[in-house]
């Protein structure tokens, strides 16, 4: 499996990664090589195999619906790059 530069650009956009135009060809080639290596999986028939999502095949643990955490809003806002009046600041989205 190879990947075209256009496909790569689309995937990078989905991942919100901006590629330097000078490196697109090189990045595409390297990722194409990785996908080629990954394609060795296709040689094995897995039609009768159920996918394994968790190494121990356990189920999600549930807990009582009770408040156990304290409010740490100030602490978490304090590590934001930019915040004001209890809010995260981002560039204007709506004109």
């Amino acid at each position: 499996m190879t990947i075209s530069e256009q496909e790569l650009a689309r995937v990078a956009e989905l991942a919100r990664i901006r590629l330097d135009p000078d490196t697109v060809t090189d990045v595409t080639r390297r990722i194409g090589n990785i996908l080629g290596m990954i394609d060795r999986m296709q040689a094995v028939d897995t039609s009768a195999v159920s996918p394994m999502a968790h190494p121990l095949d356990t189920v999600q643990r549930l807990r009582p619906d009770e408040v156990t955490e304290t409010d740490r809003r100030e602490d978490f806002l304090a590590i934001a790059p930019v915040s004001e009046a209890g809010l995260y600041l981002v560039p204007r989205v709506i004109e």
Binding site: L8, A12, I34, L35, M41, V49, P51
Partner: peptide, 27 residues
């Protein structure tokens, strides 16, 4: 590189060929 490979493997039309297949191999 890994974010892009992962995004590709999970993207529409490729999920079965990659992620599901890998989880089957994992089993």
């Amino acid at each position: 590189r890994r974010i892009i490979v992962g995004t590709y493997a999970l993207s529409a039309g490729y999920y079965d060929a990659y992620y599901r297949k890998a989880q089957q191999i994992r089993r």
